[in-house]
Design a binder for these strands. Sequence first.
DNA 1: CTAAATGATGACAGCGCTGGTCAAAAAATT
DNA 2: AATTTTTTGACCAGCGCTGTCATCATTTAG
Lengths: 345, 345
Amino acid sequence: MKVTINDVAKHAGVSIKTVSRVMNNEPSVRKDTFDKVMAAINELHYQPNSAARNLASTRSYSIGYIYDNPNAYYIIDMQKGLLDSCKKHGYELLIHPTNAKSPGIVEEVKELVSKSRLAGLILTPPFSEMPHIAQALEEMKVDFVRIISGSTPSPGVHNCVLIDDFTAAFKITNHLLELGHTEIAFLCGDEEHSSSGERLAGFKAALTKRGLQVNPKFIVPGHYSFESGVEGAKKLMALPKRPSAIFACNDEIAAGALFSARLMNISIPEQLSIAGFENSPFSRQTWPPLTTADQPNSIIASQAAELLFKHTRPNANKAQINAQPVFIPELLVRESTCPASSKQG
Amino acid sequence: MKVTINDVAKHAGVSIKTVSRVMNNEPSVRKDTFDKVMAAINELHYQPNSAARNLASTRSYSIGYIYDNPNAYYIIDMQKGLLDSCKKHGYELLIHPTNAKSPGIVEEVKELVSKSRLAGLILTPPFSEMPHIAQALEEMKVDFVRIISGSTPSPGVHNCVLIDDFTAAFKITNHLLELGHTEIAFLCGDEEHSSSGERLAGFKAALTKRGLQVNPKFIVPGHYSFESGVEGAKKLMALPKRPSAIFACNDEIAAGALFSARLMNISIPEQLSIAGFENSPFSRQTWPPLTTADQPNSIIASQAAELLFKHTRPNANKAQINAQPVFIPELLVRESTCPASSKQG
DNA sequence: CTAAATGATGACAGCGCTGGTCAAAAAATT
DNA sequence: AATTTTTTGACCAGCGCTGTCATCATTTAG
């Protein structure tokens, strides 16, 4: 049942130390010794005791995922992707949902890292965008990979996976423009999330490229919440000149806008087109289903973990580490958007 | 930064072993010694090193949560509750999302338990209702707590937390009856989930108690999915005699029914009342918001973990273990249900 | 009021592995 | 063949905690 490193050593006819060297990917192990040990490991189905490793070793074999995101589907997808990579590399995943705005958050993260002796961390917004968190982690010499909004890899920063919200938002806006809409409003997400800024920038860029003015009244600040969408749409529809389309910063806001429109007896999409962002499962389940942008969260997550493991693994090839994968969410056209008509506006 | 058992021992003026005894809830520790140690623990914010515990002890300090549930909000809530209890007791939580219908599922679970040396497992539907899983775990002598649907604690089975779906469904049905509805349909969830059966039974019981007949045509089999709700409502509305209210087995189904009604130009709740179950976040965000039943998943989860720890902990008071907490989801009235009118049906 | 029984506490070894040091053995180089 | 370089092993300490057993304190019985 329980095979120890000792058994493997005997079976392979080498010392415990050599097995340990193999397990830890240390250099200066001859090829045939390596193979011999590997054979013994496989034959005996040896699984290193992670408790012992963690205890004895300075480094650890678990990574943490810290998050504070109201979108459960996003989190579940992320966890899935992270677990896939962890399993592949023999790491453990520790999840740590918490409140990003809590005053002691830096301490909390530090404590998590030191107590659980994490080999590394995965951060998603809002944590990936909190400089004091990154700073604290750097001080602790813990590796971490951030998943952040951005389009161009920056040369200095290497531990990132980028989501190109700008381009995706550009595409969505273009979709609305192609449908003939010219009076398009934008419902912002939380200011402190850079995704909101990126999406807004993409929106503006698309308008500008068509030679259209950006109407400041059509840009409504808000939060990544249903309620914010309700409020935002209400404000927009109270304007003397209404927009014919709304681009909401995410699906929740879009759903809120939809809800709000319903309250005001505005029919969607005939009188008002609404587009969301994120492709949450419920974006298919609103009425009408939302036009949105899809991002493959599981894949993004597992890429982020792979990147992290390249750091944490001893004797890693540091040359590879500077890769900064970029993902561009894809346009997903559903029934909440339709061509602009003269009746609109 | 890292507080060890040694620090606590010194601080409390006792031996390491005594601190260990306190940590492990061992008997034969005098009250005042116990308090002294606890004070030191709290003062120093001591958190036991789980790797060391795992290594030194025959038993382990991590529990697993195996799940396969499409409802991300449910999972997140469960995780939250489990983590709370784990933190409190110094346990680690290993999450393991997987496919319950995979043919090798029993082997997969077994491997997880042995490889990760789990002290115990938490199971939610559908896993909590799979006899071969329970059997395999019993054979492995691993403790586990199941969260299942049921109203009355059964004397033999002790490792359960019960959700009284029957009573909750009874209440919801009563709500509809009190609104004057007599033609009420029921959209079932997956047959293999006992929650569906329990809810149906509660529904029937409420009707029967009012002296009403249960119309078999108004009981539509289905699944816990949006799509199923769409289909179910379509079938019901095609009947020569339509129901005036629908009780859907969960919010997703209810949302599907809502969607379907929208397609058929049936206005909710004026022409048709719809009630859901579960109080998913999106049940507030449909139009109109859904009347539903709320169950405190985080609390349920942490209770389940507490129950598990009572097993896994050495020197547990076996008398307490037979407790089978029962939770009754509460009725939450929103706008998707209204009094029956003569126009309905 | 002392002896025995019971209860509370501590000393110590060791869980399985890693990290370090150093020396011996093997291979590669001159 | 002698030297250098590389690979391997022997050994030890120790990660932070628990299990065992011996010891000390306290209660109960005689």
